[in-house]
Amino acid sequence: MSQDLEQPRLSPPRELFCTSCGRRVTYERGIVKFLCPNCGEQLIVRCRICRKHAHEYTCPNCGFTGP
């Protein structure tokens, strides 16, 4: 079926945007990306600053809010 559901939707050449603040993130130390812990379908990206300050992220797909 759709490969999109099997793998993170963004491959390296694509740009990443922080799920919390919307800023474009580069591959710097401290960023992270993972599929939403709840629905497993949406890629969550957290920039270093949002992660450091424990800013909440909300999954656009299922509404789960972390961390």
């Binding site: 130390r29 992270v32 993972f34 969550i44 957290r46 450091k52 300050h53 424990a54 972390g66 961390p67």
Partner: peptide
């Protein structure tokens, strides 16, 4: 290394760099 972190957190913990508490 950019590895997602799940953590048990007590009242005295900070949530910095925790992805699922």
């Amino acid at each position: 290394m950019g590895i997602p972190v799940v953590a048990l957190v007590d009242a005295d913990n900070e949530l910095d760099f925790i992805d699922l508490a």
